[in-house]
Structures are given as structure tokens and as C-alpha cells.
Design a binder for these strands. Structure first.
Lengths: 238, 238
DNA sequence: CCGGTGGTTCGGCCCCGGCCGAACCGTCGG
DNA sequence: CCGACGGTTCGGCCGGGGCCGAACCACCGG
């Protein structure tokens, strides 16, 4: 009876992964990268308020740990999340973390309000917009919610009428529909291949436009009409 | 333009949560507790090979962080995962961690083989047994897998015929059906309320019995007949 | 060719936190 | 009432790692 009978997914491996996110600076990097875009090392350093050298070391660790993918261009080091699985990991984790404290400044409160209205969550829609769309799809039977989380046949057709062929959408082991906990609404919104396709369509069709450099979104007049007509979503408060 | 424009789910919160799992000893505690049962502080200390005092401190941190629930009984301190959300968190995280290295000893290899055949994963079935059942349910249309992960009407009926009324099963915000990545098979198996109900039924009906003190399971003769008849699952290699 | 700038490497500082053993406390059993 | 035992608290040790600034390298622009 040795005392070291390992539980299978070795503790060390789990600890090594968690340690990557256990630092405040690295965590803030990953949260920033949740916007799905590639950032330069300098941008992230300024965001977190650390020296460039410090950021550089953190990025190397995150890349070595497989969480980030890097791409060197000239004298810039661009870095982004390594893939949807990583985005999901960060989302899941922050969904279980304690709710954020109230914003300090008026500016921050304003920015927070914009994010709460509508934003991207890696590659799908979130905020009140995201949950409102998800709710409407559940209500209209495009999405099944009581026995799990899956697109219905009607849902697949609905995407088809939008001009989005989900069958031909690129998917590896990624689920078609997935529930992602919204950290402002504290309720689920649509993620996965379908969520990403919907977000892409919304941006391509001009339903939403990005606000400044953040991942917050503004719903266009065209978008309001489309959402109202297609899903009956009231966008008055967005 | 302050450099500290926070991403919303405050980095610090995420880091604090991750830090709880970023220690090898604490990680091994959590993985052990994935069997869904309550362990005493001493058992966990011996498992991880640390002094009782060290284990005590780790447990206090995990409890304070909300990952573990404790229950004092006489001179014992029993501790278990705080709930299914926590179990899911650990599962998700270890699903993304690097695969475990090959076992060192023959004993360990044997125990690993037993775990790979059939085991519990917090409160549902896993291992080859778990994935075989899930595959069969997908094949028979009891479970929807191509557009998400949800129980079909036929699936709800199937549970009803087993004598399991899912509508009356206790569920808070917990999803009815959820996909959980199996770390031996590297494929999904059924979790969530339905997965837990199935596991409970399998144990109650004597389809499976626990092997020793581990979370490995043995499929009984009765269980083989039931699984073969109900789902066409071949249990020859289990 | 020569600044300006983004990124990296290195050395050094310092603190956090994981570990232990010893002392202590409470419960259980005789 | 007393020993045995599980658990906790405290002090002290020590290593890891996060941070910075300085020096350095590479690319880009004029």
C-alpha cells in the first residue's frame, strides 16, 4: 500500500496548467486575448502595467504551455489564443471565479455598460445581445434547452435561410452548439460552431460594428431590423 | 488613456481561482475527490505524501476558495467537492492538461487498466464503459450528438422505462445532458443530470459494483445482460 | 548609415507560499 | 481518568518565481 497511488490525470499536469493562469498578469493577458484578435507584446504589457521584459517572459511561458500561439512579423511579436478550446477553458474558469468588484471610475463604469450591452466572447456574441438572441432561439424552437443544448432541425434550417451552411462550416472536434456562461448576465449564451457562425454573419452583414479598440459592439439600425424580423428580439435597450 | 483598463472578469479573480489548483498537492486532492465521496484530511495527506499539517492548510484554502465543502464529525474532518460545478471545473481543466505519463510500476498499470475499463467520474460513468454507453445512446437516437449534446424525446422515454423520472430529478442550474471529456478514451461521455441518474441507477440496480477503495467499477453479470438488452452494448472487454 | 522603437536576455532583488516538526487541543475508547 | 489518535496552529526554513532596469539585438524609417 504505497501512499503515492496516483489519481490518473496526474496532479502535476493539472497543476502546471493551472499555474499558467494563476498569475494576475498572465490572467489579464488571457482575458484580453479573449477578444479573439492578435495583440502585440507591447500592447499587453501596457494593458497590464508591467515592464516589457516582464511581459515578454510571461508570453513565453504561455506559449510554451500551449495556451497561446505566436506569430512574428518584423519586429513585432503577435500573440493570440491557441484556439477555441483555450478560449473555452478561460471562459469556463472565469465563469466559476468570483464576480468582479464594482467599477471604480465613471469611465470604467461607462465602458462596462457598453460591454454588458453587446460584445464578442472570443468568436461568438455575448452580453445582453448574446443572451437575448439565445433566449429568442430557445423560445422559437431553433435551439433545444431543456434536455441539453443542441440546435434543432428548425435551427439548422434557420441558419440555412441566413445563407450559412453549418454542415460545411469548419469544425474539428468542436461542438456545433455549446452553452457558454455569460459573466455579465450570469446566464448562458450560444457558443460553439453555430455561435461563431452567427457572430461572423452579424459582423459581415453589418448587424454589429466594433466600438473602438475594445471588444464591445454597437448594434446598427440594420441589425435592429434584422433581429426584430428574424427572431423578434427587441433591441431598444441595446 | 490609463493603462489599467480592466477586462471585465477581473484578472485577479481568475488568478486567485487558478492559484487554488496550481499546486501539485492541492491538485492531487481535487483529483482524488473527483470520485464524489468525502475523504478525511488524513487520507488525503497520506495520498499526497505530505505531513498532516501541510494537508490541513491546503484544505483550509480550498474550502475558503469555495472548491471544497467540509463536514466535521467528531475528531474527523471530512471534505468533498462543493458540488457538480466544481467537479465539472476540475474535469474541464484536466481535459485540457497534458496527457499523463506512462505508469511506472506493474501495480499502477493494473490499477490504471481497471480504471480505464469502468469508473465513476464524480457522479456519472466513465472509462470504456461510459463511452460505450454514450456511443450506443447516440446510435439509437436517445442522445443527439451532431448538433450539440441533448437528450431526445426517445431518450427521455428510455429513462422513463428504466423507472427514472428525469423531470422530477433534482436540478438547479445544472444541465440535463452534458458532454464530459473522458481522459482515458479522449472521447466524450454523458454527464449532467441524466449522466448522474444513469450512474445512480446502475449502482442501485447492481449493474456495477465498486472495486475496493478506488473509483474503479466492475460490471456484474446482471449488468452485462441489462446493457446488452437495453442498448446492445457488448461488454466482453470490460 | 544612423537614430528610434519593439522585443529579448540577464542579473539581482524580494516576497510569497509550500514544507516540516513541535506543541497543542479535542475526541474517542478503555 | 488516561492514553491514543486525528487535526490544527505556529515558527522557521527555503526555493521558486515575479518584478525591474540595463544592456543588447533586430527591424524599420529617413
Amino acid at each position: 500500500m504505497d501512499g503515492m497511488t496516483q489519481s490518473q490525470p496526474n496532479g502535476p499536469q493539472l497543476a502546471r496548467l493551472a499555474a499558467l493562469l494563476a498569475d494576475e498578469t498572465r490572467a489579464s493577458f488571457c482575458l484580453a486575448l479573449l477578444d479573439g484578435r492578435a495583440w502585440t507584446a507591447g500592447e499587453l504589457a501596457r494593458l497590464a502595467g508591467v515592464a516589457a521584459s516582464t511581459a515578454s517572459e510571461h508570453l513565453s511561458r504561455l506559449v510554451a504551455g500551449g495556451l497561446l500561439a505566436e506569430e512574428r512579423q518584423g519586429r513585432h511579436r503577435y500573440v493570440r489564443l491557441a484556439g477555441p478550446q483555450v478560449a473555452q477553458l478561460i471562459e469556463d474558469l472565469s465563469g466559476h471565479a468570483a464576480p468582479p468588484p464594482a467599477p471604480r471610475t465613471l469611465r470604467a463604469a461607462g465602458a462596462g455598460e457598453a460591454m454588458a450591452r453587446a460584445r464578442t466572447c472570443y468568436d461568438h456574441l455575448a452580453g445582453r445581445l448574446g443572451t437575448a438572441i439565445t433566449d429568442a432561439m430557445l423560445e422559437r424552437g431553433l435551439l433545444e434547452g431543456t434536455t441539453g443544448f443542441a440546435l434543432t432541425e428548425a435551427g439548422v434550417d434557420w441558419f440555412g435561410r441566413l445563407g450559412v451552411d453549418l454542415a460545411s462550416a469548419p469544425r474539428g472536434r468542436r461542438p456545433m452548439a455549446r452553452s457558454c456562461l455569460d459573466w455579465t448576465e450570469r446566464r448562458p449564451h450560444l457558443a460553439g460552431v453555430a455561435g461563431a457562425a452567427l457572430c461572423r454573419h452579424a459582423l459581415d452583414a453589418g448587424w454589429c460594428v466594433r466600438i473602438g479598440t475594445q471588444r464591445a459592439l454597437r448594434v446598427s439600425e440594420e441589425g435592429r431590423r434584422a433581429l426584430s424580423g428574424l427572431l423578434g428580439v427587441r433591441t431598444a435597450d441595446l
